[in-house]
Simulated scan of single mutants.
Amino acid sequence: MSGAAFRDLYRSLRDQASAAEDPERGALGRLTPERVVAAAAQVRHGRTVSLAAPIETEAGQDNPEPASHTMTAPAHGELGTRGEQFARDRFAMNVHGDADSHLDALCHVVYDGELYGGVPASTVTPDGAGALTLDLARDGIVGRGVLLDIPRLKGVPWLEPGEHVTAADLVAAEDAQQVTVGPGDLLFVRVGHRLRRRTLGAWDAARARAGLHPEAMRLPAERRVAALGSDGNNDTAPSAVTDVPFPVHVLAVNALGLHLMDYLDFEALVPLCERLGRWHFLCVVAPLRLPAATGCPVNPIAVL
């Protein structure tokens, strides 16, 4: 895709969103109380499934800056004495890496000097973001989740790094799974990244990974979804667009106002969906209360 074609697509989706969405909350405004109630009413079995992978503290090819977990108490040899004691620890991570499940806030992606809705990029400072922060999702992201399994559609365990998911693939997966993505849905797209990683080992996902083609973003825009997630980065590597390394991030976050969830894990959910014969579920996402943050680790819960 040429740079000029991408800019045309960006302007088209941005204009489509600006005419319909809340300039301060983006696509989260589609999660109306009525849609949340309808999603909750579809729970049939009371089964809950995490859509996150365990946070990793060991370095790897796709995780050169792993999260750190340090015990701050008790000191060595302190346990076992009489009376009250506490175990304490400290946690730190690179939120936007290529291994851990995380949520991207609307302040995460700058394009042509602006954030979503034309907010100046200068609102992001060394002290934190001043607009469109993670705090927009402080009350949770709750709605009907829909999982589209692209490897299942193609009869393979996973897509290979560099392969693109097209809008036609998404529609074909809907047909195969007898589910339709609609307004206010949380759309999840499986490319099989997690299964490939567990089977073959980690690789440099920054250089090569499966993901959505930029043109595929027309579907979530037209269907007016409320959020988008994948078991990969959402973006393919190498990028399909000249000089834009993360075009799907630009289109989703910056143009459409969609909160993105990267590197989720659907491997426990898929067999349950197959067994129950349904690919939609109540989904509950509870981001951390970090008011000036550009994102956070996340653990979406599917309830069937």
Results as ranks from 00 to 15, higher is better:
Asp62Pro: 01
Pro54Ile: 12
Ala39Glu: 07
Ala105Lys: 01
Asp100Phe: 02
Ala105Asp: 07
Ala87Pro: 00
Pro74Ala: 02
Arg14Pro: 00
Val110Thr: 13
Gly118Phe: 04
Asp127Ser: 15
Phe91Ala: 10
Ala53His: 03
Thr123Arg: 14
Ala20Ser: 11
Ser122Gly: 12
His108Tyr: 12
Glu56Tyr: 05
Tyr10Pro: 01
Ser68Pro: 00
Ala53Arg: 14
Gly46Gln: 08
Leu9Trp: 00
Asp15Gly: 13
Arg35Cys: 02
Thr32Phe: 07
Ala105Thr: 01
Arg47Trp: 09
Ala40Trp: 09
Pro126Thr: 13
Phe91Cys: 11
Thr32Trp: 08
Val119Arg: 11
Asp127Leu: 14
Thr57His: 03
Ala41Ile: 05
Glu84Tyr: 11
Thr123Pro: 00
Tyr10Phe: 15
Pro126Phe: 08
Thr125Gln: 10
Ser101Gly: 11
Asp127Glu: 15
Pro74Asn: 03
Tyr111Asn: 11
Ala17Cys: 07
Tyr116Glu: 05
Arg47Val: 15
Glu24His: 10
Ala59Trp: 02
Ala27Lys: 02
Val36Ala: 03
Pro120Cys: 08
Arg35Val: 07
Tyr10Ile: 03
Asn94Met: 09
Pro126Ile: 10
Ala59Ile: 01
Glu21Met: 12
Ala121Cys: 09
Asp112Lys: 13
Glu84Lys: 08
Val119Glu: 11
Asp98Met: 12
Arg88Val: 09
Phe6Trp: 07
Arg11Val: 14
Ala53Trp: 08
Met1Trp: 07
Met71Cys: 07
Val109Gly: 01
